[in-house]
Simulated scan of single mutants.
Amino acid sequence: MSTTKNSRYIKATPEVLYQAFTEPKALETWMAPGEMTGKMHSFDLREGGSYEMSLYYPESEKQTQGKSSNKEDRYKARFVELTPNKKIVQAITFDSTDENLTGEMIMEVTFTKKDKGTEVSIIFKNIPPGIKPEDNEQGTEMTLEKLAKYVE
């Protein structure tokens, strides 16, 4: 099981960023890396609550690579910890028949106020063996880029 860490300075307050991580429509907009798109299936914002979401690969991408189906990564995220404007911890499980993609992955997000913005750090722990750490880091970088564009 691997661990990755990505950080990005974003010109927004911790409050605005926390809200972007805790609103279904916002997550649909920026959570999907690159040209992927997102769709929220269910959402229950509370510690112990969860959400279910799909990330769809663009039709232009010809390689089959989805974790759940050809063009889809579907997952369930359980809220382990919600500390408003400071920290979010989620336990994520992919909907997959491939044992190398299953298991509970932990995503820990912290918001640290810096100057006129916020340092957003995302640590993934227990990354399933079927996901290359460098792919996870690249996807997280693309997601943080979309998040910055969404809130700035």
Score class of each variant (00 low, 15 high):
residue 122 I to V: 15
residue 134 E to L: 11
residue 23 E to L: 09
residue 59 E to N: 08
residue 59 E to G: 03
residue 78 R to H: 09
residue 94 F to Y: 06
residue 68 S to T: 15
residue 88 I to S: 02
residue 84 P to A: 10
residue 69 S to G: 07
residue 97 T to I: 08
residue 62 K to I: 05
residue 139 G to V: 09
residue 146 K to D: 03
residue 93 T to Q: 14
residue 4 T to E: 06
residue 95 D to K: 14
residue 150 Y to F: 15
residue 102 T to L: 00
residue 116 K to A: 12
residue 124 F to K: 12
residue 94 F to A: 00
residue 146 K to I: 03
residue 143 T to H: 04
residue 81 E to T: 14
residue 59 E to S: 12
residue 103 G to C: 01
residue 85 N to Q: 14
residue 85 N to G: 04
residue 83 T to M: 07
residue 131 I to P: 01
residue 152 E to F: 04
residue 49 G to C: 14
residue 146 K to V: 05
residue 86 K to S: 13
residue 122 I to S: 05
residue 32 A to F: 04
residue 107 M to L: 00
residue 142 M to E: 14
residue 81 E to R: 14
residue 14 P to G: 07
residue 126 N to F: 07
residue 27 L to F: 08
residue 152 E to K: 10
residue 26 A to L: 10
residue 99 E to V: 08
residue 2 S to G: 13
residue 34 G to P: 09
residue 7 S to D: 06
residue 37 T to D: 01
residue 96 S to W: 07
residue 63 Q to Y: 13
residue 108 E to N: 01
residue 52 E to T: 15
residue 90 Q to R: 10
residue 12 A to D: 03
residue 133 P to S: 11
residue 25 K to L: 11
residue 47 E to M: 10
residue 127 I to R: 04
residue 148 A to G: 05
residue 107 M to S: 02
residue 144 L to Q: 05
residue 109 V to F: 02
residue 25 K to G: 04
residue 2 S to M: 05
residue 115 D to Q: 09
residue 126 N to Q: 14
residue 122 I to M: 13
residue 143 T to C: 09
residue 83 T to S: 15
residue 115 D to G: 06
residue 34 G to V: 10
residue 132 K to L: 13
residue 52 E to P: 01
residue 92 I to W: 08
residue 111 F to N: 01
residue 83 T to N: 15
residue 2 S to A: 15
residue 7 S to P: 04
residue 129 P to H: 13
residue 151 V to Y: 00
residue 61 E to V: 09
residue 98 D to I: 04
residue 110 T to L: 02
residue 64 T to S: 15
residue 122 I to F: 02
residue 65 Q to R: 15
residue 7 S to W: 06
residue 19 Q to F: 09
residue 30 W to M: 01
residue 99 E to S: 14
residue 126 N to T: 05
residue 107 M to Q: 01
residue 1 M to A: 11
residue 75 Y to Q: 12
residue 89 V to N: 09
residue 38 G to L: 04
residue 35 E to A: 13
residue 125 K to F: 02
residue 24 P to G: 10
residue 20 A to W: 14
residue 96 S to R: 05
residue 125 K to A: 07
